[in-house]
């Protein structure tokens, strides 16, 4: 029957095995790539949104300035400024959508 005598360890290791192993394993560790700082998705979108908003605002100001100084002034009623603004807004929304997709958001979710 099982008794305490049977609990002796029948296995052995080479001399200094663990001391040598502890040193050798450190040389076998694969290099780690520098970790990419994980940015929460909301922060990425906010940053890009802010940049895009500045871009849109500057563009609008620029366009308005150019149009107000042009030799063929375009009236608001003609709709061309409105069209330009709408087009820029659409571009802005497309840009945000694209960036969010490209961010590979699944890996970037803040935990």
């Amino acid at each position: 029957m099982l008794n305490d005598n049977d609990k002796r360890n029948p296995f052995r290791v080479p001399e200094n095995y663990f001391e040598n192993f502890n040193l050798e394993i450190m040389d076998k560790l694969p290099e780690k790539a520098p970790s990419v700082k994980k940015v929460p998705l909301w922060r990425s979108i906010t940053t890009w949104s802010a940049a895009a908003a500045v871009f849109v605002a500057v563009s609008l100001v620029g366009i308005n300035y150019l149009e107000s100084n042009s030799s063929h002034p375009t009236s608001i009623e003609s709709g061309s400024t409105t069209d330009t603004t709408a087009s820029l807004e659409n571009d802005y929304y497309d840009f945000i959508e694209e960036e969010a997709t490209l961010l590979a958001y699944k890996d970037s979710f803040y935990e």
């Binding site: 360890n9 296995f11 052995r12 290791v13 080479p14 663990f18 192993f21 502890n22 394993i25 450190m26 560790l29």
Partner: peptide
């Protein structure tokens, strides 16, 4: 820290493994 981890646990883990795979 990993080196310290190895020193602290290598023997324990070795024996767990050895009892399963049997050969040194």
């Amino acid at each position: 820290a990993f080196s310290d981890l190895v020193k602290a646990f290598s023997e324990q883990l070795y024996w767990q493994i050895r009892k399963m795979v049997l050969s040194h």
